[in-house]
């Protein structure tokens, strides 16, 4: 197992390098240059070149690239231009909020999506299947922020069950009340997604020869579905949810803005408005590394669920 983990980590290195190179190129593609983007086109030539020197932008491109790689790989993301605090600290401060939101939405998605998908598969082309298909199609075709605004209007403004704006609170009940609406909003999208993947995966599995073998053994229906069906159907679900993770964080960012929740969303918006290019660059790298890490984790879970994946 340890060796498998090491192998997976090593295999991630090229991806990581490609990602870093892309961030590097993207940042250089900013019209004018980063210094001008930050100081504005009214800035004096002297202050521009001072900033360029500070950012190392006066160096040859190859040198810049190597310095960039060295900094990023060393976890040295620099200091936010707007707040003056280290980028890592800025991100670490808000990341738990975003992670909490994504985790909650995956949990909600699993709680509702797995049973819905299974029922849809078991009652294929009967009314439970149609209902679940319509629900998941609706859930998937609404952009998250649109349904978020609708939910805000309904539950926070009209019914007043939940706060309209999140206010940081140490009280666990308030904390959960703050989390509830955004988590439900993303959770519904997740439910729609997991329902759909579970349904098709379950349908595939139910057609497998080994399900017929289990029936031939006299395995009763409930056990047939749970032990022989679901266990195998979960393998693709885990993979697909893992692959979806990057998109999910992207959605969280939008939803955070709709619900004025602290988190990566607010940080990114702030960085954009302030043209805080070190922060943006750091955010991109951290975010992408995170997605790579989640993909590795998915592979590990996969290896645990599926005995055919060999660790060696």
């Amino acid at each position: 197992m340890t060796r498998y983990i090491i192998r997976r980590l090593l295999a991630a290195i090229p991806t990581l390098l490609a990602m870093l190179t892309m961030v590097f190129v993207l940042v250089r593609l900013v019209p004018g240059d980063a210094a001008m983007a930050m100081l504005g086109d009214q800035a004096s030539e002297a202050s521009l070149s001072a900033l360029r020197a500070r950012l190392g932008l006066d160096q040859p491109i190859g040198v810049q690239y190597l310095a960039f790689l060295r900094d990023m790989l060393g976890g040295n993301f620099g200091v936010s231009m707007s707040s003056g605090r280290p980028v890592l600290e800025e991100v670490a401060r808000v990341l738990p909020y975003t992670l909490e939101l994504t985790a909650a939405s995956i949990i909600i998605g699993a709680i509702f999506g797995l049973p819905l998908g299974m029922v849809a598969a078991l009652y294929r082309n009967a009314w439970p299947d149609y209902v679940s298909r319509i629900l998941s199609l609706t859930g998937l075709s609404f952009p998250g922020f649109v349904s978020g605004i609708l939910m805000l209007l309904a539950f926070a403004v009209y019914l007043r069950w939940f706060p309209v704006m999140s206010i940081a609170s140490d009280n666990i009940v308030d904390h959960l009340r703050n989390l509830a609406l955004p988590a439900l909003n993303l959770g519904l999208i997740m439910t729609a997604y997991i329902t759909r993947v579970t349904r098709s995966s379950m349908l595939n599995v139910l057609g497998e020869d080994y399900i017929r073998t289990a029936r031939a053994k006299g395995v009763p229906p409930r056990r047939l579905i749970m032990r022989h069906g679901l266990r195998n159907a979960l393998i693709p679900v885990v993979t697909v949810v893992g692959l979806y993770f990057g998109t999910l964080i992207g959605n969280s960012v939008l939803v955070e803005l709709v619900f004025t929740r602290p988190g990566l969303g607010k940080l990114i918006l702030g960085a954009l408005q302030a043209r805080d290019y070190t922060l943006l660059q750091g955010l991109m790298v951290i975010f992408a590394s995170f997605v790579i890490l989640v993909n590795i984790l998915t592979d590990l879970i996969y290896a645990v669920v599926d005995p055919r994946v060999s660790y060696s």
Partner: peptide
């Protein structure tokens, strides 16, 4: 019924399938 049938299968009447490669559950 399916439930009564399950009591017969594997117990009174058993079957060996033609497809040995795919007839066993891969996660058990």
């Amino acid at each position: 019924s399916e439930r009564q049938m399950a009591k017969v299968r594997g117990n009174d009447i058993a079957m060996i399938f033609q497809e040995p490669m795919t007839s066993l559950n891969p996660t058990m």
